[in-house]
């Protein structure tokens, strides 16, 4: 196997520029595995930014993948808005009860100030330390939950759909508040050292709302929000379909789009080619069971479908690798990517 000739940052930038680097970049969105590395409970691990820094650096060395994941857990944004999270020994901290109990509560809602919110400051502190460790060699990925998708945690999915469909003026008010927070939170991460921001927007997926509804709601939100984020963005649907809205996502100015296993990866790549890079499409829920052969065949299939011409980052579709995925599987994935992702991919016809 030929060794790498580029740094993870050089490799990633080349592929985002729709050129073929030395090999396909591999992003493992690892959060909880850092706690394993340090022998800490998940709650202990996230209580101290230095733990996350140490965890991410150890994971980078151990697996040799191509990014630092400067993301703690999704429920952290609910904490910022006054909610809580539930910690577990074997899974991500999960968002607790909603903070918006009645639609009218939106009228009194005030977005959190990033600089005055301890849980957000912990993330920024970790990203700052990570940046000082890896410099410009490794991309650091920051994360925001989109203004359009955050209400699933803020008020509950069913009540949010009711709001979107039946109370447009309060929906618009909530979007305005969330947009202000999202832009401030994303830009704070970029200032702290994040290279790019993943804009998690699962509700925007055609799996969740029809395209026409997205064009009337989540799309203008994304257009306004992404335009104000001062760095490259990746729009991610957390395993939802994207095929029918790729053109709309391209219009937002996003640099990357997350593909699902529910879409045909080669068709996604064809629709994105030279306009937006594709991230995907390994299913981390299924990774728990993967043998070495399964890891290799899945990696090969993804690279064959989307690797040619650059513009492809091999990654998971959910945005987080579950605690239960064995270390050996992660090693096998990166090993297969380094073997089969070497450009010019002559084997992939």
């Amino acid at each position: 196997m030929t060794s790498d000739t580029l740094t993870p940052m050089q490799r990633t930038l080349a592929t985002l520029g729709h050129r073929e680097p030395d090999r396909v970049p591999v992003f493992l969105p690892l959060t909880l595995h850092g706690a394993k590395e340090l022998g800490l409970s998940i709650e202990q691990y996230f209580a101290e930014p230095g733990n996350v820094v140490e965890g991410q650096l150890r994971l980078l060395t151990k697996y040799g993948h191509d990014c630092i994941y400067g993301f703690f857990f999704a429920g952290l944004e609910l904490m910022a808005w006054g909610g809580g999270v539930m910690f577990f020994d074997d899974g991500p901290p999960n968002a607790a009860a909603p903070v918006i109990h009645r639609p009218e509560d939106i009228l009194d809602l005030v977005p959190p100030e990033v600089a005055e919110t301890p849980c957000l400051l912990d993330v920024l502190s970790a990203q700052r330390m990570l940046k000082s460790e890896v410099g410009d060699d490794v991309p650091i990925i920051g994360v925001v939950i989109s203004p359009f998708s955050l209400p699933v945690m803020q008020m509950g999915f069913d009540h949010y759909l009711d709001l979107m469909l039946e109370t447009p003026h309060l929906f618009e008010r909530l979007m305005a508040l969330n947009e202000e927070f999202c832009v401030a939170w994303a830009n704070a991460q970029l200032e702290a050292g994040a290279t790019a921001i993943v804009y998690f927007d699962p509700v925007a997926s055609p799996t969740i709302v029809p395209r026409q509804r997205y064009l009337e709601t989540g799309h203008p939100v994304a257009m306004r929000t992404l335009a104000r984020i001062s760095g490259p963005t990746a729009v991610h649907f957390a395993s939802g379909r994207c095929m029918s809205i790729i053109g709309d996502v391209i219009d937002t100015g996003a640099a990357v789009i997350g593909a699902s296993t529910l879409d045909d990866l080669s068709s996604v790549k064809d629709a994105c080619r030279t306009k937006v890079a594709v991230l995907g499409n390994m299913d981390a829920i299924q990774m728990r069971h993967w043998s070495q052969e399964a890891a290799e065949s899945t990696v090969k299939a993804s690279i064959a479908a989307a690797g040619k011409g650059g513009g492809f980052i091999l990654s998971d579709i959910h945005g987080e690798i579950p605690w239960q995925v064995p270390d050996e599987v992660l090693v096998d994935i990166v090993s297969a990517a380094k073997r089969w992702g070497r450009y010019p991919l002559d084997w992939a016809h």
């Binding site: 759909l161 469909l165 055609p206 799996t207 969740i208 709302v209 029809p210 509804r213 379909r241």
Partner: peptide, 11 residues
């Protein structure tokens, strides 16, 4: 089949 969205199923 991906022909309708979850919000439509919900409604």
């Amino acid at each position: 089949r991906g022909e309708v969205a979850l919000s439509e199923v919900y409604m």
